[in-house]
Write a protein that binds this DNA or RNA. Structure first.
Length: 433
RNA sequence: GGAGGGCUCGCCUAGUGGCCGAUGGCGGCGGUCUUGAAAACCGCUAUGGGGUAACACCCAUCGUGGGUUCGAAUCCCACGCCCUCCGCCA
């Protein structure tokens, strides 16, 4: 939800933001009108209530003779209040509806345009070359006994998989590496629920345009999260946080579920695009003034993680038309996938400014001691399945083995290579090299 | 799934139809006293909306939503959450 005061003071800024997104500018005027209408309705109801309150008080002090007349007047006012309150409710609902249609204001500097207008900020690492026929991650994974799509489909349907043997170990190794690095950077590690109630889902903006993407458990009125961002943001709803010691940062691990509606035919092979995967997500609460800096920090942690995995990547600044409704700015990191000879999204970090927090009522105490709406930011540290896919492809060797990045070895029993048919080393902690 | 108990201001608590936005204590902030601190004493100490240049002022909020009533923290209904016991269970 955008700030209505800002809308009142500077509607042109909101219109300009809509234009950059390629979104409907007239929604801004609808919202402004709904806001004005609501204020009018509130004022009317408030005034009537004040009058009725006074009339009510008068009932007590009335003498027996005047009592009937006073009561009559109070009764009449009560009826009027009821009507005015009904109108107020309607105006409220209309405002809310209009409010939900307007996405967050985009930051200055966000590229205009859509999916194809993302700007590459930098490219890091050498694109690898191979002097043998490159295999895709599924071929490699199957040869290693790491990925089993067929049985995933048998048990759960398309876009489900089993990670087996070295694949399962890789999952845990990546989770460990991600969490360990996050903790070292000062994040509080969190294991978050992947089933959440409607408020958290709606508050984070996932029940709007992308509702089709979400699995719902109808019977219990719960949703499966597409990212632990939902639970992490919801964790502090209706709270006033103490941010005097700096941003509040969480690294949340959870399973993530996505219906992938509308992605038919895309990435049907392997585990790049699946209905379920596990992810370590960074989430940060901070004062709005600090959000842009915090965003850069999240991006830096993402980059360092990929560097530790020895993966070449590029950083892109997502164009306004391709931002989610909550984001004011978004950076994706795309890593190189040799089988596709292209960079593919591996992580994504969004600055949601106060947009989510306003809906979820997440505040912090300002220096004046007054509560203010906080900013929220999120960023992928490691989307595990897709990262496994990328690792297998980038680090594949001519003989079918796969190089293990040094940083991962402590959680893989110290092995330097994954080899078809290898006996699995017990993943006992090995001191980092 | 069944049976009970509970949900009031940061925390604990008083309050069973108007005098209650709400008592008292703790905590926090400011002051008096003190070389300093503690103790003691005094004062302040919610949030949201509307309104204002800023105040003033008005409205709402006692888990949530309805209802009864001129008037509800207090009465009625539904729901949510927490606790205890029983059943089931990783």
């Amino acid at each position: 939800m955008i700030d209505l005061r800002l809308l009142r003071d500077n509607p042109d800024a909101v219109r300009a933001s809509q234009r950059t997104r390629g979104a409907d500018e007239s929604l801004v005027d609808v919202l402004a009108a709904a806001d004005a209408a609501r204020r009018e309705a509130v004022q009317r109801a408030d005034d009537l209530r004040a009058e009725q309150k006074a009339a009510s008080q008068a009932v007590r002090g009335a003498s027996p003779e005047e009592r009937p007349a006073v009561l009559e007047r109070a009764r009449g006012l009560a009826a009027q209040v009821k009507e005015a309150e009904e109108a107020e409710r309607e105006a409220d609902a209309a405002l809310r509806e209009a409010h939900l249609t307007v996405p967050n204001l985009v930051h200055d500097g966000v590229p205009a345009g859509g999916e194809d207008d993302a700007v590459t900020l930098r490219t890091v690492g050498e694109v690898p070359t191979y002097d043998f026929a490159v295999r895709d991650h599924l071929e490699i994974g199957e040869a290693l006994g790491a990925i089993d799509m067929e049985r995933g489909a048998k048990v759960s349907g398309a876009r489900f998989y089993f990670l087996t043997g070295p694949g399962a170990l890789l999952e845990f190794a990546l989770a460990q590496l991600a969490i360990t690095r996050a903790v070292a950077a000062g994040f509080t590690p969190v294991v978050a629920p992947s089933l959440v109630g409607p408020r958290a889902m709606e508050g984070t903006g996932f029940l709007g345009a992308h509702e089709e993407e979400v699995y719902k458990v109808e019977r219990d009125n719960l949703y499966l999260v597409g990212t632990s961002e939902v639970a992490l943001a919801g964790m502090h709803m209706d709270e006033v946080l103490d941010l005097s010691g700096g941003p509040r940062r969480y690294a949340g691990w959870s399973s993530c579920y996505r219906r992938e509606a509308g992605s038919y035919g895309k990435d049907t092979r392997g585990i790049i695009r699946v209905h379920w995967f596990d992810k370590v997500e960074m989430f940060s609460f901070c004062p709005p003034e600090e959000a842009a800096d915090e965003h850069r920090r999240l991006l830096a942690w993402e980059e360092e993680f990929l560097q530790a995995l020895e993966l070449p990547y590029r950083v892109v600044d997502i164009a306004a038309g391709d931002l989610g409704s909550s984001a004011a700015r978004k950076f994706d990191i795309e890593a190189w996938f040799p089988s596709q000879s292209t960079y593919r999204e591996l992580t994504s970090t969004s600055d949601c400014t106060t947009f989510q927090a306003r809906r979820l009522n997440i505040r912090y105490r300002g220096e004046d001691g007054k509560p203010r709406i906080a900013a929220t930011l999120n960023g992928t540290l490691c989307a595990i399945a897709r990262t496994i896919a990328c690792l297998l492809e980038v680090h594949q060797q001519a003989d079918g083995s796969v190089h293990v990045p040094v940083a991962l070895r402590p959680w893989l029993g110290g092995v330097e290579r994954l080899t078809p048919g290898m006996s699995l080393a017990a993943p006992l902690p090995v001191p980092a090299a």
